[in-house]
């Protein structure tokens, strides 16, 4: 199961990086979202996908799931959610004011 998840995370990274290298701003934003999904899946996989009881101490249970990766993912998802929404607003505003969403034309020059 871990192998499948790793391959999936790899695919997400791949498509994410491909989108990140595009010129259109919206594609880049989608690329970052895909990369962060890949990263979150990696955390989940790296904590080992164990079957087991909820990590609460009870009698007669020996096999617990690892709660730490889940806590880490939750934090990381919230952060990337915030950053992605900020990035979307900013991309909208930047393309409005600069009259283009093409990164090639957003290079800028020295004196501004």
């Amino acid at each position: 199961m871990e192998i499948v998840m790793s391959v999936l995370a790899g695919l997400l990274f791949m498509t994410g990086v491909y989108n990140l290298l595009q010129k259109q701003l919206l594609r880049i934003v989608i690329g970052t979202a895909l990369i962060s999904h890949g990263a979150h899946l990696t955390i989940l996989t790296m904590g080992k996908l164990k079957d087991g009881a909820a990590p609460i101490l009870t009698d007669g249970v020996e096999n617990y799931t690892d709660p730490l990766p889940q806590a880490l993912i939750l934090t990381s998802i919230v952060i990337s959610f915030g950053v992605t929404s900020l990035l979307l607003v900013l991309a909208y505003r930047a393309s409005k004011i600069n009259h283009t969403d093409n990164m090639e034309k957003l290079r800028g020059n020295d004196y501004e």
Binding site: T32, I35, G38, A39, T42, I43, L68, L72, V83
Partner: peptide
């Protein structure tokens, strides 16, 4: 991008 790389690296380390 580097933050996402950071998270991935932490998961490797973990």
């Amino acid at each position: 991008f580097s933050s996402m790389l950071f998270v991935t690296t932490i998961s490797f380390l973990y």
